[in-house]
């Protein structure tokens, strides 16, 4: 039997690892993957609460989040490829066009 708090703890740690990846890494690809990781942690919470409350709405919404994540990663990777063509880099600290 699964404890709700186990799910919450694991998903919060997963989310924290995702935030750490976004903050710490330079590679834009790894940052995108970390964002996917955070969306997955949210999905885990959705499913756990769906099971806890006895309704399938949470599972349906997790499916929507999954589709949203797919759209987001498609656009994000297209941005990375366009950036590589224009600026010849995917390191986020080389991209400082807006820096004063």
């Amino acid at each position: 039997m699964v404890n709700l708090n186990t799910v919450l703890l694991i998903s919060s740690i997963l989310f924290a690892i995702g935030i750490a990846g976004v903050l710490v890494r330079r590679n834009a690809l790894v940052i995108l993957m970390s964002i996917e990781l955070m969306l997955n942690a949210a999905n885990l919470n959705f499913i756990a609460f769906a099971r806890h409350s006895g309704s399938v709405s949470g599972q349906a919404f997790a499916l929507l989040v999954m589709g949203f994540a797919a759209a987001e990663v498609a656009v994000g990777l297209a941005l990375v490829v366009a950036l590589y063509r224009k600026r010849d880099t995917v390191q986020v600290d080389d991209i400082n066009l807006l820096k004063g």
Partner: peptide
């Protein structure tokens, strides 16, 4: 994470 979903009875997800 897919295994987690399966163990939470969300087979389709």
């Amino acid at each position: 994470v897919a295994g987690c979903f399966l163990s939470l009875d969300a087979e389709f997800l």
